[in-house]
Amino acid sequence: MTSCPPKLHSLADLRELQRSMATALMSPLTRDDALRASFKDSAQALIQPRAKLDSFDRLEIYARQYWFRLLDCLYDDYPGLRALLGERRFHQLSRAYLAAHPSESWTMRNLGRHLEAFIREQPKLTGTKQRIAIDVARFEWAQVLAFDEAALKPLNIDKLLGSDPATFTLKLQPHVSLLALDHAIDDWFIAVRNTEHVSRSETSNARIESRALTKTKRVPLPKLQKLWLVVHRSGTDIYFKRLDREAWLLLHSLSEGKTLLTAIESALADATFDRDWSAQVREWFQSWAALGWFTH
């Protein structure tokens, strides 16, 4: 249990008070959404009791607000995972995740940054659906990035002409994510999204009631299928685009900073000879450049 100075003489004292309160707020609630009784001493050291509510009750309001606000954020940002796992199991996953990964950013937009890794590390929380859950978490995080990452000045395709492919490199736009998935998440997600409605409060600092668990409409699980996917933004809308394996590998190599020549060679290393790859690669680049995916 943290100690809290009875008087604040210095910045260190203020930090200690804030650390003490944050420890209480960010500690997992009980099954009944209550602040753990072990924080009674902290509450008494920190909070002035009044007739209506004692110190503990007042600290508990903030603890509940903290948890409900962050749980709400994951609830809104991960409709796919929620549909996959069911409300109850998603809620358990979210609580465990937030306990392990408190927010480290001023914006809640980044809250799910470690969710995919957490699902990998904690297989019990998703059980037999772990593999699908990993795919869905990656797919939904890619949408977070596609929503508001930068669209830098796109590279003119003419720049490619006359460049030396052995030295020429380019970058993908920050809003573009390349995903190699084991399930047909894209079609499945569209079915899920059609059952969803998203809203979130903005500057009110009150959130005292836990969101009621609701029964969501069941959508059949995504098919087992190797998928080479790009999640990106065009204008202000988010799109998912399936690619050929070779096309995805080519983009992936470029995104890792490989030269054009190396990227093409590694992408086509296992390619069959039944296609005109030269024409195909040219067509890909024209299409990707038109979508504005390349930048310097």
Partner: peptide, 25 residues
Amino acid sequence: CWGSVNGRYSHDLLPIPYTMSVAKH
């Protein structure tokens, strides 16, 4: 208000302890 400490964010508008040293800070 305050809202984060040691790099962890509450995303809440938490009350400040009302002291002169904290007011100066």
